[in-house]
């Protein structure tokens, strides 16, 4: 694999005016792009002889609504009693995120053997991003998936239908405010001889609370 730092330098040099920021972490290059520059940057990454990202590996939607919010406060909870019965109130009162959503693209260059990750942050009020199907045809289904699960609209997509969820499904299930057990459950009604959708009867509960540890206990090399 080619050196990721060299790639990072090249990207910053060639595309400086069109990218927001770039960072290298654990030998992976992540580049933040503004929505308006996405197609531009993608074209350059595909066609520039230095990059030649000829393969789009993946398109992934991300919802940052609950990012960094834990279900169980580690600092104060133990002082007031070891209470595991946590509720989701912290999640429900999640503050509005400016850039709640993101579309993340993973690219691979077969000729140069390097990878890059593009990220476009999107605001909830305008969940639209230009489609890259015209640049990499493989984006077709990946974008349909991100649309289905997160409701991100890919402008210019030739066939933006739901792909993974049921026919007639309502909502975007991978959003963080969509409950894990869903909204409706289906059953076959023998009297009416059809499948009925009814409000879900499963009561959501947390078995293992989400805990964020920032006390460095996972620093490697310590017993």
């Amino acid at each position: 694999m080619t050196d990721v730092n060299a790639l990072s330098l090249n990207v910053n040099e060639r595309l400086a005016d069109r990218i927001r920021s770039s960072s290298v972490a654990i030998a992976e290059l992540t580049v933040d792009v503004a929505r308006d520059h996405l197609l531009d940057v993608c074209l350059a990454l595909r066609d520039d002889a230095l990059f030649q990202f000829d393969q789009l590996i993946d398109v992934c939607g991300v919802d940052y609504l609950h990012y960094g919010i834990s279900e169980w406060e580690t600092q104060s909870a133990t002082a007031s009693g070891f209470e595991r019965g946590v509720d989701q109130s912290a999640m429900l009162q999640a503050p509005h995120k400016v850039n709640r959503f993101a579309a993340v693209y993973h690219l691979l260059s077969l000729s140069h053997n390097h990878r890059i990750r593009l990220r476009v942050f999107l605001d909830e009020t305008s969940l639209e991003v230009p489609s890259v199907v015209s640049i990499w045809p493989s984006a077709n289904w990946f974008e349909r998936e991100a649309f289905d699960l997160f409701g991100i609209l890919f402008l210019g997509h030739p066939d933006l239908r739901r792909i993974l969820t049921d026919y007639g499904f309502v909502g975007h299930p991978f959003r963080k405010d969509f409950p894990l057990s869903g909204h409706v459950e289906a059953r076959y009604d023998a009297a009416q001889q059809c499948v009925l959708y009814e409000p879900v009867t499963v009561v959501p509960r947390i078995l293992e609370p989400k805990v964020i540890r920032d006390d460095n206990r996972y620093r490697m090399g310590e017993p």
Binding site: I57, C60, F142, E208, I212
Partner: peptide, 23 residues
């Protein structure tokens, strides 16, 4: 491919599985 986003918690914040068969 497995794309993992962590916000420092004991659970993945987002896990994306890139399956070859999908493409």
């Amino acid at each position: 491919g497995v794309y993992l986003i962590s916000d420092g918690a004991n659970k993945p914040y987002r896990l994306k599985i890139r399956a070859a068969g999908f493409a």
